[in-house]
Amino acid sequence: MRTQAALLLVLVAVASACGGAHGAASDPNQPPPPKTTVAVESRKLVDVNLYALTGTRRMRLGTVPGMSTRNFVLPPDMVGNTDRIRFGIEIIGTLGHKSLGSERGFESEQEMSVRPGDELSLTIY
């Protein structure tokens, strides 16, 4: 029993050491990665949620109210791993019209070329 407890303690210590190195701050001599942004202009009357899509990953960036423009910063790990990114649009408002219903619906996707530091622009119609 004492051997198993010691082995468990060693495994916990090794896991903690590995986890700490992964989450450590980056090299202070290295410049931070450039921010990649997307300006989203919505010409819809209803609000939409904006998602960044890469491979099987879907990350919600935020809400764009109807007839407005919002700016979002893309997560560096989503930009650095690929040269293309897709944006998904989810309608979240219906203006109370009975024929439109009230459930959210994933409406469309838009794919764009992207590199770290780019300033993208997306218009929703």
Rank of each mutant, 00 (worst) to 15 (best):
D47G: 12
E103K: 15
V38S: 00
P34E: 07
V114K: 07
A52Y: 00
G23Y: 11
T54K: 01
R86T: 07
F72E: 03
C18S: 09
R60L: 15
V48Q: 05
L122P: 03
N49A: 09
L100E: 12
G66M: 09
R43P: 01
F106P: 08
T69R: 13
T63V: 14
V38D: 01
S42A: 02
N49F: 11
D118W: 05
V73T: 12
C18Q: 09
R115C: 07
H22E: 10
P75N: 00
A15Q: 11
T63K: 07
S42C: 04
S16T: 02
N81D: 04
N49R: 05
C18H: 08
P75Y: 00
G62F: 09
A24G: 07
L100A: 14
P33E: 08
E109Q: 07
S99Y: 15
G80W: 03
G23C: 10
G101W: 15
S16K: 07
G105Q: 12
N29M: 13
L53H: 09
M78H: 02
S42K: 02
L50M: 10
N49V: 08
I89F: 01
G96K: 11
M59K: 06
T37V: 02
L100I: 07
V38F: 01
E103F: 15
R60P: 08
P65F: 09
V46P: 01
A52H: 02
D118H: 10
Y51N: 15
I92N: 09
L45I: 12
